[in-house]
Nucleic acid binder design. Structure first.
Lengths: 194, 194
DNA sequence: AGCAGAATAGTACGACCGTTCGTTTCTGTC
DNA sequence: GACAGAAACGAACGGTCGTACTATTCTGCT
């Protein structure tokens, strides 16, 4: 990896730390330059526009997410164990990776009603993720772990809502019971899917 | 109502329209002055700081929410009917009231990791709301509609997650099945609470 | 009708924003 | 070790931000 690529990666990493707490729109070139100990113009040269910085930060997070959640999930054995692995990895992602919580949730809420490239990118990433969950649930069906008439789309919808609820309770309300509540809800979801 | 109070109310109303799509932090005095056809300074005089504008906009939304959701809910007959009323009113609130979706969800995500008066206010409103849901669920228990050993805190947690999931699916992903999914999940939640 | 105070407007401020441009410093290759 | 291109810097731009002042216009009461 060349020098330029390395700096760029570290900028994007730092950008995600900031974006997780203040959002992507509140990212500012100047502040980011300070945190990375670069000049504004030197940092800017890597992206040539703020929108590009935001987009590439989001893609950086997506690549990270793939490493941390998607790939390990696919390594677990098919069926319910894989669903469990997905859940556990996802929970860790929500909890530990960023100081301000999941950047995708942040992005989803920032751009849900604001047109532009960021909106489109966020939507695409979320659609991919939802599709992935649905597929994993599908393998649990075909393995016979889940009932054959399970609506895997509904399963995904419920799991997504569960995670958003966890984020809300844990992040905003600092509810110490949030993890337990989430785990027990997940078990109930599994039970009703068998 | 005096002239000043009327203008202030209309400013807050407009502020909420904007905040629902771009968030509370992205509210700007200048832009808001344009939309309300006032001078920046004339508008500013009503609040004396941007933070006060944000706080009062949030309180304005809370008062509105009380009228639109809380009061009608309390008018429904105790027990499960009241829980249903809460759900339906809440769903309408999420869907129809603001052009950019629920301002509390917006606020929750903006301030979950940023200290300050806005953070505290958002948390307080959300705690009040959660407490209200729990209480309503409690009446369904005491009326004998829900099982006596129901964990009403868990019920609230699940319902909150369900609504966040709805918001996510309907707003960001524009999933036309979002309402149906939410309703059917709600029915399942009721069933498992009886 | 006139007056007091509320409500609104006008202007200016320093700070920061994203972006541009020309210059300087560093890196990797021969 | 020289040279070319990549990488980073410094200074400046027009614009918007929140806020502070003073001045003007409007409202409601007597």
């Amino acid at each position: 990896m060349s020098k330029g690529q390395a700096t760029k990666a570290s900028i994007l990493h730092e950008a995600l730390q900031v974006a997780s707490t203040v959002g992507f729109e509140a990212l500012s070139i100047g502040q980011l330059a300070e945190r990375t100990e670069m000049s504004k113009s030197g940092l800017f040269a890597h992206f040539r526009s703020k929108e590009q910085l935001q987009l590439q930060a989001l893609d950086h997070a997506a690549a990270w997410f793939t490493d941390a959640v998607v790939r390990p999930t696919l390594k677990a054995s098919r069926g319910e164990p894989r669903v469990r692995e997905l859940f556990e990895r996802w929970l860790v992602w929500e909890t530990e990776v960023f100081p301000g919580g999941c950047v995708f949730i942040a992005g989803s809420n920032e751009y849900d009603d604001q047109p532009g490239l960021m909106h489109d990118s966020v939507v695409n990433h979320q659609r991919d993720w939802a599709e992935f969950i649905t597929t994993v649930a599908g393998t649990a069906v075909s393995e016979g772990h889940f009932r054959p008439d399970l609506d895997t789309g509904q399963f995904t919808f419920l799991l997504q809502g569960l995670m958003l609820g966890y984020h809300h309770a844990a992040r905003l309300l600092r509810d110490p019971r949030a993890v337990d509540r989430t785990r027990s809800a997940f078990e109930q979801l599994l039970a009703s899917s068998r």
